[in-house]
Amino acid sequence: MTGQHYNKTSNARGAASVSPAAGGHAAAGKHAAASSAPRVRRAGLADTIMYAVFLIAALISVICVLLICLFLFANGLPPIIKIGALEFLTGLVWKPASGIYGIAPMIIGSLYVTAGAMLAGVPAGVLTAVFLAGFCPDRLHRLLSPAVSLLAGIPSVVYGFFGLVLIVPIMQSLFGTGKNIFTASILLGIMILPTVVSVSETALRAVPDNYYEGALALGATHEYAFFFTVLPAAKSGVTAAIILGVGRSIGETMAVIMVAGNQPAIPDSIFKGVRTMTANIVLEMGYAADLHREALIGTAVVLFVFILVINLLFSIVKRGMKA
């Protein structure tokens, strides 16, 4: 594999600076190792200018992150302070018309829906990944694997529309309410399937073959070997897949709006409607003004903080995978 080959050379690059005589491979890598290597030719003016251009391009993403943080926090923190952070975060009533801004129902709504999506999507996703990695004939794999990634490409409005016209009526006839936590969970579960499947499958395939072979040699069946040696070995990759799924479902907007009912109250059963933080923003941003509008930006700040925490968890797990 080319990727692995590259990693080897780049490791060699690191070693090359310590011991110059680290073998032909390291010496070869050194040439490609950018400006740390002895200059092949004196850098001309064009080189210097383009170096600056590339550097600036690389810094654009950093500037974007800083801008997003700046604008969100500068616009979202003052209203939170004005309303009172505790009142804003734990207030159970959202009534912009009477100037009451409590987003606890929305925070809880987001958490419920995300948890539901995990329950619906993760077992199916991980087991499908196990199927693709260990139980699937090659021919079927060539069909099923693109189909799963196709699922990842479907726009969220189309998912929402599908939920609205098919799942909601079915739920309506089964449980009395169509737009509720249950429906939203199922739909979000479907939406995170491709992420969970593809990341888990990659993790499962990265487990060295001798784990599986060792288990077989000790008398395990194919199923035992896969579930009790390969799957535990891929644990951190699967965890990363789940965290990615959490991030996607807590941030999902359009599909959730169309099937969750959007009542800003804490639901007492999973067959009640619920409003997520994302839905709160989209539903009211269009007409909100003054403090109401600022409170919506405050909602986005809370959502943003959630996402940052999830990102942090993800990178910790990923770092654990490398180590």
């Binding site: 604008f71 807590i250 907007t253 994302t278 996402i307």
Partner: peptide
């Protein structure tokens, strides 16, 4: 990792 609605608001 940022959700699209946050981009929209930004």
């Amino acid at each position: 990792g940022i959700p699209s609605i946050v981009y929209g608001l930004f």
